[in-house]
Write a protein that binds this DNA or RNA. Structure first.
Length: 236
DNA sequence: GCGACAG
DNA sequence: ATCTTGTCGC
């Protein structure tokens, strides 16, 4: 159903129409569980040149067989973003690259971990929600820092400890301790996965590290893509 | 008006 | 978002 609107939501010409598109996407987003058995999870992340705000964006989606927890296929793609980085509009920068990588995957994941916010966004449309709705795929937002809102209370010191993330009176995410003595990460619903289920899945795939495995795999794959592209440039 | 601001 | 070496602690 997102198909005919995909064009409108993909790359708006300016931030004003982008803002309008985000409100529509946020309305379409589902915050309750709607997915089947997960035989394959995946992580999505991007990489770009240091301090280069308008250069190409290299994206990767790395899959992970589940419950085997063995790394599977990964796909990568590179695209030029429509506009420079502006906080709150990350989705429009990274979605083209991420969707291109998604299309290259021979077998699609059942659950996608996205590096960034989901509903914990000023207009409830972080990148995890954005790509989740565009693809109509279950997504979980995994952010390393906060974009909006505030943590209610303190996050305990033990892995699994958590505290709600509140923005304008609404619970939009969870601050989650995934590793002792490491800063918490911020989990939020992307699309078709409830907040509670999102936290469960993150903890399930976080083997003693701060970030869940799919995100780490995607990070590596995106970096590899960037290096491959820059090497290719040098030899031409 | 001012500050804050994912990746 | 990325760079780089060492250092500290489990």
């Amino acid at each position: 159903m997102a198909e005919h609107r995909r064009r409108d939501w993909f790359a708006p010409p300016d931030l004003k129409t982008a803002t309008h598109a985000q409100r529509e996407i946020a309305e379409t987003c589902e915050t309750t569980d709607r997915f089947g058995r997960v035989g394959r999870a995946a992580g999505a992340d991007t990489s770009s040149a240091w301090r280069d705000t308008r250069g190409p964006i290299h994206a990767a989606i790395a899959t992970l067989a589940w419950p085997d927890a063995v790394a599977g296929e990964a796909a990568a793609a590179t695209r030029i973003p429509p506009f420079p980085y502006v906080p709150g509009y990350l989705g429009f920068r990274e979605a083209p690259s991420l969707l291109a990588a998604w299309d290259k995957l021979p077998e699609k994941p059942d659950l996608l971990f996205v590096d960034g916010q989901g509903r914990s966004h000023p207009r409830r449309c972080g990148i995890a929600t954005h790509v989740g709705v565009l693809l109509d795929v279950p997504t979980i937002g995994v952010a390393k820092t906060l974009l909006c809102g505030a943590v209610e209370g303190e996050v305990g010191p033990a892995p699994g400890d958590r505290a709600p993330l509140i923005d304008r009176g609404e619970t939009v995410g969870v601050a989650l301790r995934t590793r002792a003595r490491a800063a918490p990460i911020y989990i939020s619903t992307g699309h078709r996965v409830s907040l509670e289920t999102s936290v469960e899945w993150v903890l399930k795939l976080t083997d003693g590290r701060r970030l869940p495995l799919p995100i780490r795999l995607a990070h590596e794959a995106a970096n590899a893509q960037r290096r491959a592209m820059t090497d290719q440039m040098a030899s031409a």
